[in-house]
């Protein structure tokens, strides 16, 4: 069993209103120097068998990410 972490982020150029709203709130709290705040999702899953990274990639393409609006990265816990 391998622990795999999938990170799904809005693609560059796709409006991220959630990230914008949080950045505005940070600005109000005195963190006006931060920029490019974007919000995505972290998906953790245990995958048995061979090639957990390849399996995770197939799952991302089948369901976990929408390639029109999202990018994903896969990290395998070694």
């Amino acid at each position: 069993m391998t622990r795999v972490v999938v990170t799904v982020m809005p693609r560059e150029g796709v409006l991220d209103p959630q990230g914008q709203a949080v950045q505005i709130s940070l600005d109000r709290l005195g963190f006006g120097h931060v920029d490019n705040l974007r919000i995505g999702k972290r998906i953790e899953l245990d995958i048995p068998g061979d090639d957990p990274e390849g399996q995770a990639r197939t799952m991302c393409e089948a369901l976990l990410a929408n390639p029109l609006i999202e990018d994903f990265t896969i990290a395998v816990d070694g």
Binding site: L15, P17, Q18, Q20, A21, N66, L68, I69
Partner: peptide, 8 residues
């Protein structure tokens, strides 16, 4: 695809 409204 459908994204969150710009107004959130």
């Amino acid at each position: 695809a459908l994204r969150p409204n710009a107004t959130l």
